[in-house]
């Protein structure tokens, strides 16, 4: 169910936000937007289907704790 909501949301985003940007013919903005949108879609779908992505907070915790110990 959540996955369906996510996919429908992306259809809306592409229709109302992405296509107008492509039409504006600003190449640089379109490339950055496409990259960010693709990245957000892939990561969000992975999170929704239950794939465990590495948390940056754990890395921060590990680094800070090792600094404090030394």
């Amino acid at each position: 169910m959540v996955l369906v909501i996510v996919i429908i949301s992306y259809i809306f985003i592409i229709g109302f936000d992405y296509i107008p940007l492509i039409k504006s013919q600003n190449k640089k903005e379109t490339i950055i937007y496409s990259t960010l949108l693709a990245l957000s879609f892939v990561t969000l779908v992975l999170v929704v289907i239950g794939v465990k992505l590495p948390s940056p907070t754990k890395l921060i915790e590990y680094l800070l704790k090792s600094i404090i110990k030394t």
Binding site: Y33, L36, L37, T43, L44, V47, P54, S55, T57
Partner: peptide, 20 residues
Amino acid sequence: KDFTIPIAILMVVLGMIVYD
């Protein structure tokens, strides 16, 4: 303002994975 939506979704993704 053009980048608000993808960055917002990436913020949600980070929010989801930031803690167990």
